[in-house]
Design a protein around this nucleic acid. Structure first.
Lengths: 144, 144
DNA sequence: CGGCATCCTTCACGATACTG
DNA sequence: CAGTATCGTGAAGGATGCCG
């Protein structure tokens, strides 16, 4: 068992959520950061996005998330399962059949993640233009 | 100039957004994936979250994002600037004063990102419980 | 103060091989 | 099919030093 979360040992309790979102940083470094990392992770994002309202078998999921290695899909799904975001169902048949689906909690996260994905899709051209403009400006500076 | 995005040279044009979100994967591997990666990046997320409706100086931002190195803050801000999400303003005084703020585009992303942050805050206990339960189950299996 | 360049380490991840 | 275990590598990122 190699990559098991190491859980930063820092001081981390009583994350008084009273003072409101704008101050969410005062006690950051706590678990929020770690969870955010996991949840915003490249492969987690894609896995959750693809499990929208449907359960998928391991290989099926692997095919849909183009470019993911078997190893990373396994690791990612284990983490999501551990976090209670994905439910793993094993059918005791041979050859084995394992299905993955979002839990209710995972479904609520899906909504948020889908918003991020949609935002990206909707603004990719704008970003591409910004990049081109930025690079052009850099070019100028380099020439001069 | 070391880490400049390499821009995967794969086939990537005419990302027909006609077929709708559920099919956003057919042409993935395109820029969407790359942008999603950047935008969902650990430090990008935090930087954008902290630039909510206020501009901050470099050092101020650095102090608020606990744990970020100077190097990573610089790199992150450059990328966000290049993507048109953050505006960098240099005041020609000495010592130099540089302020960072969200662009209008960045502000729209902030909304989405804040939703993700809020989700994480709202569900951290639930996730902690899920993890504890999962780990307990693993323990059982190991003992047997 | 707000960087950039260099060096060096770590570890995330892919590739590969083996199993129930 | 759906994993697990092991190994090797590249790249991410921290530490440090210098500069306008």
């Amino acid at each position: 068992m190699e990559e098991r979360p190491v859980m930063s040992p820092g001081p981390c309790e009583g994350t008084d959520r009273e003072y409101e979102v704008l101050q969410w940083d005062v006690r950051e470094g706590c678990e929020v950061r770690q969870i955010l990392d996991r949840v915003a992770d490249k492969w987690s994002l894609l896995a959750i996005a693809h499990l929208d309202r449907q359960s998928l078998r391991f290989t099926e999921l692997r095919r849909r998330i183009e470019g993911i290695s078997q190893r990373m899909l396994t690791v990612t799904l284990r983490q999501l399962e551990r976090d209670g975001l994905v439910r793993r169902t094993v059918y005791p048949v041979v050859p084995p059949r394992v299905e993955y689906a979002l839990t209710p909690l995972g479904a609520t996260l899906h909504t948020t993640i889908q918003a991020l994905v949609t935002w990206t899709e909707d603004h990719q051209e704008e970003i591409a233009r910004a990049r081109a403009a930025f690079d052009a400006r850099q070019e100028e500076v380099l020439v001069s």
